[in-house]
Design a protein around this nucleic acid. Structure first.
Lengths: 224, 224
DNA sequence: AAGGGAGACTTACGCTGTAAGGGGAGCGGG
DNA sequence: CCCGCTCCCCTTACAGCGTAAGTCTCCCTT
């Protein structure tokens, strides 16, 4: 008997924990990432994890860094080096968005973390670098970061998400309170009429995101 | 002895609970609003609160409605009825921002709530109404809501908040990693040089918010 | 072979939201 | 007049959270 233990018992490193945590978050959401559940996923007890991460905050910070690395990787893979500043920023931000869409829990995580990781700071630094190369003053680049806000990282909290309203009956719900929100009902029915295919999911998030992004970038181009 | 109980024992209504919860959140943050702490604040046990709110989610929804009511009240008080759409929206959104600044926990609460309250829907409806009156198509108004995102409600998550980084040494921290983020260091030092008064709090959040808002509104005006 | 440290384990504490059931005051009907 | 019903508020308890503290068991080094 070469293996006295029936369990192979993987070596249990910080990397392993982070990847397992991503898997849990992707599958069941960020709130499902608990120390006990993570321990179970890697075949260990909750307290054993503390030999590889300082505490839960450290683990979450590790997740942020992992997501940022994924963004960097995607940016590098799609890089066309000598773009003008505007398409370059656009590409970078849309790459970030692609990664965020793969990890729906990431936006909330980024917003919740009390400190900003070095990876996030470096990401913004690179955006400022693009703008500087495009002739921006530091002052305008500074304004630009604030104008973009979370959109710079590829997301903007969708407060106005009709799909969140109990699924398929949200359209009906809106119609029921037609007297209370006449303009929204008008807006929804008209837009749904133009594109009768999808009444739920009646707006294309990707297109909306790009519209808003271009609105901002165009405005900045005009002020440059 | 007219009062057999030494404690006056207020009647303990939903309104009372909500107001006490706001007080706790204003004082110690949203995470301090627990059922036990709230019970203590109103002189009752935690479980007694469930006679007036369905559960904690219901309580938080009540807080959202309370904040929205405060916004509506402020908008009504500062209303100058027949503005053009752009200053009207600007005023409305900046009123919302004023309320959010009074309740720093509100943005996170709004983003965290799984469903959108009627009050929030009505707020957006009124924005669409303003845009319609200003000649917007429903399609453009729809784009506009997405472009504004959380800014429509007076906040935009400040991911890039230097004050969050351990207070007064964040400038020094940035300088220490100058080789890693050269553009940010350049930006910070130049802007701090222009206004040597405040190195921490070196950017005026209100001005930045208004810059971004106007960037968006101007862009929409041009596309109208 | 002995010593030591790394990495896993067990136990326990205080915190959370809330399910379940007990008790007393006020009030309406026989 | 008094019984019983209905509100409120109470106490108790449970499962789950992050994690402090202490213990055991290998394996590597000297």
């Amino acid at each position: 008997m070469a293996q006295p233990n029936s369990e192979p018992r993987a070596p249990l490193s910080r990397e392993l924990l982070l990847r397992a945590a991503v898997a849990i978050a992707d599958a069941d959401g960020l709130e499902a990432v608990t120390m006990r559940r993570l321990g179970e996923a890697v075949g260990a007890e909750a307290m054993s994890l503390y030999h590889h991460v300082a505490n839960k905050g450290d683990l979450l910070d590790g997740l942020v860094d992992l997501v940022m690395a994924e963004i960097d990787e995607l940016v590098e893979r799609t890089a066309v080096p000598d773009d003008a500043w505007q398409p370059a920023m656009r590409r970078r931000i849309l790459s970030a968005r692609d990664v965020m869409l793969k990890h729906p829990w990431a936006p909330r995580l980024f917003e919740t973390r009390p400190t900003m990781s070095l990876a996030v700071v470096r990401y913004h630094d690179q955006l400022v670098g693009l703008m500087r190369a495009g002739g921006f003053s530091y002052d305008l680049a500074h304004h630009a970061l604030h104008a973009l806000g979370s959109r710079a990282l590829g997301f903007s909290q969708e407060l106005f998400d009709p799909a969140a309203g109990a699924g398929a009956n949200s359209e009906r719900m809106l119609r029921d309170m037609a007297d209370q929100v006449p303009h929204l009902v008008g807006m929804m029915t008209e837009i749904a009429h133009d594109d009768p295919g999808s009444t739920i999911g009646w707006c294309d998030d990707q297109a909306e995101f790009e519209f808003a992004l271009d609105l901002l970038l165009d405005g900045l181009a005009r002020r440059r």
